[in-house]
């Protein structure tokens, strides 16, 4: 099997680029949402497709959660998917955050709206750091409050064995809202990412 694991330098490089992208995203989100969004230092690691539902179960079982996916493509064969997880005990907070004061916006639409804002803002920052640019697919609700998302996840066929998984936590400073983003970059694209990181490292 091809070695997907990172050298210490590559891991350091990715961690630093992600930290910087998070800072940039925090800044933009703070301006747009008029409230400070803190992005927490992520955990980075390789996971196998089989582990994912189990990991999510441990974290989210029994909670009133929703899961929204957004796919992206970059240059040089880089691609991946982000999954945003929300606890839906207070969907009204999201509406307030987005500045929606009309009742015409459904909960599903609010979830996809906030997801694309949180995700693309961070990923655009990351793309900049990688001297790349991403294009995005429309966000899709994988599960909402009506369905058990872990069983949905178990039914989802992952077409990869191993993926790079980055956990990122978004938190408002007043703790009124938080969510988790999981960035998954599947096997083949991890090799591309390693090549891109080597280019970045060679520049410095």
């Amino acid at each position: 099997m091809t070695d997907l694991s990172f050298t210490e330098e590559q891991r350091d490089c990715l961690q630093e680029l992600i930290n910087v992208a998070m800072g940039l995203a925090s800044d933009k989100l703070a301006r747009f949402l008029n409230t400070f969004v803190h992005l927490q230092v992520p955990a980075i690691g390789l996971v196998s497709a089989a582990e994912i539902p189990e990991q999510f179960r441990g974290q989210y079982q029994g909670l009133n959660s929703s899961m929204i996916s957004l796919g992206f493509f970059g240059d040089g064969g880089l691609r991946g998917e982000t999954i945003l997880l929300y606890q839906l005990d207070n969907a009204g907070k999201i509406a307030a955050l987005l500045g929606y004061d009309d009742d015409a916006t459904s909960e599903a639409e609010m979830l996809t709206d906030i997801s694309s804002i949180l995700t693309t803002t961070f990923l655009n920052g990351l793309a900049d750091q990688l001297e790349n640019s991403f294009s995005y697919a429309a966000p899709r609700i994988i599960s909402s409050r009506d369905s058990d998302f872990i069983s949905k996840l178990e039914q989802t066929a992952f077409h990869w064995q191993l993926a790079l998984k980055v956990d990122i936590r978004y938190e408002l400073t007043d703790y009124s809202f938080d969510c988790n983003m999981i960035l998954l970059i599947p096997g083949e694209a991890v090799l591309k990412l390693k090549t891109i990181l080597d280019h970045v490292l060679a520049e410095f």
């Binding site: 330098e9 350091d12 630093e16 930290n19 410095f204």
Partner: peptide, 11 residues
């Protein structure tokens, strides 16, 4: 703590 950040800084 990041080698990349130290190198970026130097450069």
């Amino acid at each position: 703590d990041s080698l990349l950040a130290r190198n970026q800084m130097k450069k």
